[in-house]
């Protein structure tokens, strides 16, 4: 299986998880979005030596993954995209920050702690976003964004980009498969074909995107996506309030 096919399968897998029959998926998207945004805000606002509240903040991630029956492996796999950046930013801390910080009675160099907290904050952020997108469809996330008055142009761009990724990956997969089948034994794509293939890929993706857009306009689309209205149950209110309270208490009192 080539890497494009793998990416398409990953995308489909996420869509499968988003639409499974689980109570966490059925929660109102606004509550889940608010928890995620507030969680990320609270985590990133912790000080560079605040290791105890940072450890306590893991309770939301652990809960979401265990109770939500999500795979930690899948979540951490997504870290590969930002881990190099975090390490690059944090790697110099141990050399620059020579303060001694007491952790559990031991003196540790502040730079090491700040590097660790930076990486852990990144990990929590990625896992919180993963927990959100794994339990909420893109349509529901967009619905929640509109509820908090995010401009419709931004919301529709997010939704179309998500759809466009699918279109572009599909075209890339078709082109690469057609190439591979007529270039047996070759590793990757020969340099001399890169220009033609990338050009074809862009043109075909644009054509497909154009047809998708035409299909939308012919069905009355005028720049605003109108999703299914979601009913609000008691759990939809209690769940976010409980989490926001717990997270705020951790942030303020520890």
């Amino acid at each position: 299986m080539d890497s494009i096919e793998k990416k398409l399968l990953e995308l489909n897998k996420i869509q499968d998880i988003q639409q499974r029959n689980h109570w966490m998926n059925s929660l109102h998207p606004l509550g889940k979005l608010l928890i995620s945004v507030i969680y990320i805000f609270l985590v990133t606002s912790l000080g560079k030596y605040d290791i105890v509240p940072l450890i306590l903040m893991s309770v939301y991630i652990i809960f979401s993954f265990i109770i939500g029956e999500l795979s930690f492996r899948e979540g951490i796999y997504r870290m590969r995209l930002i881990l190099p950046l975090l390490i690059f930013v944090g790697i110099f801390n141990p050399f620059l920050d020579k303060n001694i910080v007491m952790v559990a009675g031991y003196g540790v160099r502040g730079g090491i702690i700040s590097m660790l907290t930076l990486v852990v904050k990144g990990l929590y952020t990625v896992l919180a976003v993963y927990a959100l997108i794994a339990t909420t469809t893109i349509e529901d996330i967009c619905y929640a964004l509109r509820m908090i008055k995010i401009p419709k142009i931004i919301v529709i761009v997010i939704m179309l980009i998500y759809r466009y990724i699918d279109v572009m990956s599909g075209e890339a997969d078709r082109i690469y498969t057609a190439y591979r089948l007529r270039a047996p034994g070759q590793k990757g794509i020969a340099y001399k074909f890169w220009g033609a293939l990338v050009g074809q890929w862009l043109l075909r993706s644009m054509d497909r995107a154009q047809v998708v857009y035409e299909s939308m306009t012919l069905r009355g689309f005028k720049g605003d996506y109108i999703p299914t209205k979601k009913g609000v149950n008691a759990i939809d209110v209690i769940y976010p309030i409980a989490w926001i309270t717990v997270l705020t208490v951790i942030r303020i009192f520890f």
Binding site: Q15, T137, R163, S215, I226
Partner: peptide, 20 residues
């Protein structure tokens, strides 16, 4: 594939009527 752009059949079929 170009006509069906939403996640579920229901969402896609409802897209037109909602826009109106």
């Amino acid at each position: 594939d170009s006509q069906l752009f939403l996640s579920t059949v229901e969402e896609d079929v409802a897209f037109g009527p909602r826009n109106y």
